[in-house]
Design a protein around this nucleic acid. Structure first.
Lengths: 146, 146
DNA sequence: GTGATTGCAAATTTTTTGCAAGATA
DNA sequence: TATCTTGCAAAAAATTTGCAATCAC
């Protein structure tokens, strides 16, 4: 709790109740869209709005407290774990699960470092393993959830 | 041209002018958002609308003529090249460039096949190399383009 | 001719903005 | 207190829908 305040302060941001609550929610959810965050906070903070959520998430991304994640359903997702790791992306419901495999990332990064990417300045690597949970298999090829 | 018609027919779809034009545009652009496609077609087909573009792109994805690509700017992107390849994702303007390296993909897939992904049913692997073009470097940390 | 497809207009969903009121350091 | 931040309301951006007119087969 104090730790979260400190993190936020270290970014040069004020540790408001909303920011603390949003960061806690992200810690709980791991990966989330703005909607996920609102859903999780509405009960405790009925007055919170999307304006604030987006505002805060954006400020967290800018200071490195969160990273954006790619998605295929035209919604922005945020990840509280900013270190290198891959994701299992469930295309049935657009959720992520961490796939932590430092070995794999080390290999990929080592490989890329040996390559010539021209005038491309590599910032980070995102590895998305796209698929389904076996239990969800039956709904693929049908209409996928938004 | 006839080739495109055939491709579309093979999917069980009717080869309408719009579908042919949209597929041609995707071949020209490689990766594109719905907006990119409209921009490229408005002159030749002033009556074309987003409804049709989305409709057609979606039908192409469903039959495997295109694949969706992940992005970080909450827009849907489509790729005419459906085989395995990585992308250099320019975070300044959310554009993609192919990074064709069968070697790398082979390694990753081989590695993953040897791993246990639990009840996750792997469908495809997306490798995104996120960064900037050196010429764009100066606008990072400032406001990124939508 | 018939069923699939398009284009229009309107609706929905997701994200952003301006600004007055409120909270933090 | 000075500045940053929030929440409201409204706008913008992106995608989807219903349906009548049109087109491909």
């Amino acid at each position: 709790m104090e730790e979260i305040k400190t993190k936020i302060h270290e970014c040069g941001l004020k540790a408001t109740q909303q920011r603390i609550a949003i960061y806690k929610t992200m810690q709980k959810l791991g990966h989330a869209s703005a909607e996920n965050v609102v859903d999780n906070l509405k009960r405790k903070y009925p007055s919170i709005t999307f304006a604030t959520i987006y505002n805060v998430l954006e400020s967290f991304v800018n200071c490195g407290l969160l990273v954006r994640r790619c998605s295929r359903n035209n919604k922005m997702y945020f990840d509280v774990n900013t270190y290198d790791h891959a994701h299992l992306y469930n295309m049935c419901d657009n959720t992520y699960e961490d796939y932590n495999d430092p070995e794999l990332f080390k290999k990929i990064k080592a490989y890329l470092q040996s390559m010539d990417l021209g005038d491309f300045d590599l910032n980070s690597v995102e590895l998305l393993l796209i698929g389904t949970k076996k239990k969800d298999g039956d709904i693929v090829n049908k209409k996928l959830k938004k």
